[in-house]
Amino acid sequence: MTLATILVIAAVLALVVVLRVTFSRGLQVSTDRSLAAQLQPIDVAAFRNLVDPAEDAYLLRRLPSAEFRAVQRQRLLATAVYVKAANRNAAILIIMGQDALASSNVHTAEAARQLVENATLLRQNATIALLKIYVALAWPHASLGSTPVVQRYERLNVSAMLLGRLQNPAAPVRIAATS
């Protein structure tokens, strides 16, 4: 009976996942038009500064150990905010890119494919980076390794702008705020 209960619970949980995906798919279709408004431009220079290993090394040299850990935790929390924003923007761009994949214009379709490819890779990197950040919060001396997220984000920005220009030159798509 215990085994039956465990398997029934597993089946119900799987069914919940399936139904949730089904409903979110329906919602995604109905809210596609407001997607671009949800993009949140990111200050890439500030983001890069936060994840710069040289900055970490400088702070480690200059600050006492306890103070370094406190400062590093604040920097990590700030980095997490950036990575979450990048992750969310990547998700939005994946949806926008997929909409443009069916375009009859070869250049637009290719730009859309490139955008989706870059955005999925960024989402993957951002997820791993977030996990690393949470580990580093417990152990602030751990290497963060978020630099690939910054690099991928910049590539994604180029892809998004290119697709935006091809689709509607008057309405820019920008995910990086320039200072």
Binding site: A37, L39, N168, A170, V173
Partner: peptide
């Protein structure tokens, strides 16, 4: 979407 009204909160200048 009319070209004069960008539908999102991006910086006003086009890239």
């Amino acid at each position: 979407v009319p070209p004069s009204e960008p539908p999102f909160n991006s910086p006003s200048a086009p890239p």
